[in-house]
Write a protein that binds this DNA or RNA. Structure first.
Lengths: 339, 339
DNA sequence: CTGAAAGCGCTAACAG
DNA sequence: CTGTTAGCGCTTTCAG
């Protein structure tokens, strides 16, 4: 077994309390004593046991992160923002994939609480009453990242999804498009479905463009599903001349589905994506898309969580980050972006 | 504070040992007693404290994962394989980004050991003598995933990188290409540099194609750096007619760099990538690439780690997974792949 | 500035 | 089948 604080105390001929003090940087130790202890630590290759420390101090310096799918290009970017800030504040991260599955989410919430994490960062789909119950059942701070909750009961970091979608569709409508298609995730998804769809409809309304249900294609967030959706659009009597996609990955599917059928982008159809993942510049033509600052959402939400964990003052617990549209080459009439 | 095992014992009028037994599914408890305890647990909303359990049992059921960059499409896929299997075996994961930085890697190794993780999964660049020292300094099992170590001292899961690169380049050479370019990461990188480069050179040699240094472009793994590398190729007196890229992302850069200059793929230049990330089917033309089973490498390495942690028998501690080439449309003379 | 002592909440013998 | 009793390794008063 490896050395304990007792072994070090013996070796240095001091009490364990003193060893604890030097390990924790407590200034109330005479330099000479500190040195003796440091030598003993070195000699025994002593490493403090964080589990014992956690039990005694009730802090684990670990936070739980519940994320739908770390292999998604969107969430992995978010996760990086989270981890970077966590590291900066000396926290480690327990990462859990939920697939936006309610039972898994609740199970993970409980597991993380059992592990005594100091806080939880939650990314998910819908927040149900049951979620809320479990989240309340412990006093540890929880912040929602890129996850919408009606009641704003929990701290959160988001962009204004409805407004962002509105901006994208409004831009298309103002260019004269009267047939604007939308590729979306399930409408039950508060963010990628409902909020963005709401923005879409409102933009149509404000531009006096009639809403047409046949222009809406509900996909499952994958590239392939979006490719297939093109089939529906293309067989329409009255085809769309522009398409707004709820995510970049689906936008790529739309672009390639269109191109595979000989349509030209942006000449025949203009396309606008959402998120500005790295994918957006890795297609030809490069994708015009709504910028959602993924890394920042992760970073800011983790920072917010540290404030709760360290009992700092919180100015605003529901942060809304700015969004914007990045104009690239799947839309026309803009200065051509060079790659 | 939340309820402890004592509170439950009092409530159920049994001893804490009995509570511990029912919580841990020990069969030596009379059904009636079990029921009493379960009721008390329910009533008090008791949740076992995993930290205390970890201290007493010396098992934390969490494993540390050191990964270069979770936001990379390659590593995030690996991470998903790791997490899925970890979940299956009831382990949680502490995820840490290292950026392949030696000091960070060593620091993380120590932090994870302090946190008493039951095992560590390590993905990185070069394994130096210093790494080895720190890894040995504790008796917890460590397995390397997608990370090459000469001495095979530590258990590992990989594919045969040199052979895989050989296969790709051999295929190109056998098609008659005499000018085959290579886009690579730094040659110091054992996997993405050295091993793949070695395979490349050997394939040239065996096909009597002379090696030409001007055909090698050292990039930094990014899409943009690969786009730039095209400039070097294109200004060559004797341009390459095929390019082998050490990663898919760089292959996309090559493809687009070439296309942006009016070259046609695969007619003017054939391109072969490496990894078969999701990117490979998200380009036009779709990318011919070496399949590295990322998810499986993650899953298998985690499974291997569980065997060490649970003291199961290990047949082979250095696993080499099979690779293959997925023929798509950046190369010719193959059955055309439909999307 | 340093030491003694009481837990933190749980597991794991060991009795009975 | 159930209870008692030591710890696990560290933090944290409280004295001195």
């Amino acid at each position: 077994m490896s050395a304990t604080i007792y072994d070090v105390a013996d070796e240095a001929k001091v009490s364990m309390a003193t060893v604890s003090r030097v390990v924790n940087g407590n200034p109330n130790v005479k330099p000479a004593t500190r040195k003796k202890v440091l030598n003993a630590i070195e000699k025994l290759d002593y490493r403090p046991n964080a589990v014992a420390r956690g039990l005694a101090s009730k802090k684990t310096t670990t936070v739980g992160v519940i994320i739908p799918d770390i292999s998604s290009i969107f969430f992995s970017e978010l996760a990086r923002g989270i981890e970077d800030i966590a590291t900066m504040y000396k926290y480690n991260i327990i990462l859990c994939n939920s697939d936006k599955n309610k039972n898994k989410e609740i199970h993970l919430l409980n597991t993380l609480m059992e592990k005594q994490v100091d806080g939880i960062l939650f990314m998910g789909g819908e927040i149900t009453e049951e979620h809320v119950e479990h989240m309340r059942s412990s006093s540890i701070p929880i912040v929602l990242a890129a996850t919408y909750h009606e009641d704003a009961e929990f701290p959160s970091v988001n962009i204004d999804y409805a407004q962002a979608a509105f901006d994208a569709v409004d831009y298309l409508a103002k260019k004269g498009h009267a047939r604007i298609g939308m590729v979306t995730g399930t409408l039950e998804d508060p963010v990628n479905g409902y909020q963005k769809f709401k923005g879409y409809k409102q933009a149509l309304a404000e531009n006096n463009v009639p809403f047409d249900e046949s222009l809406i294609s509900v996909c499952d967030y994958t590239y392939d599903s979006a490719i297939e959706s093109v089939q529906d659009f293309v067989t329409l009597e009255n085809k769309p001349t522009a398409i707004f996609s709820a995510t970049d990955e689906m936008a790529l599917g739309v672009i390639h589905g269109l191109q595979d059928r000989g349509l030209r982008i942006p000449d025949d159809v203009e396309v606008v994506g959402f998120d500005n993942t790295r994918l957006a510049t890795m297609v030809r033509p490069t994708l015009t898309t709504v910028v959602q600052p993924m890394y920042d959402i992760g970073a800011v939400s983790m920072r917010l969580l540290t404030k709760f964990m360290d009992n700092e003052m919180i100015e605003e617990q529901n942060v809304v980050l700015p969004h914007q549209i990045e104009y690239r080459n799947t839309t026309t009439h803009q200065e051509i972006v060079k790659e």
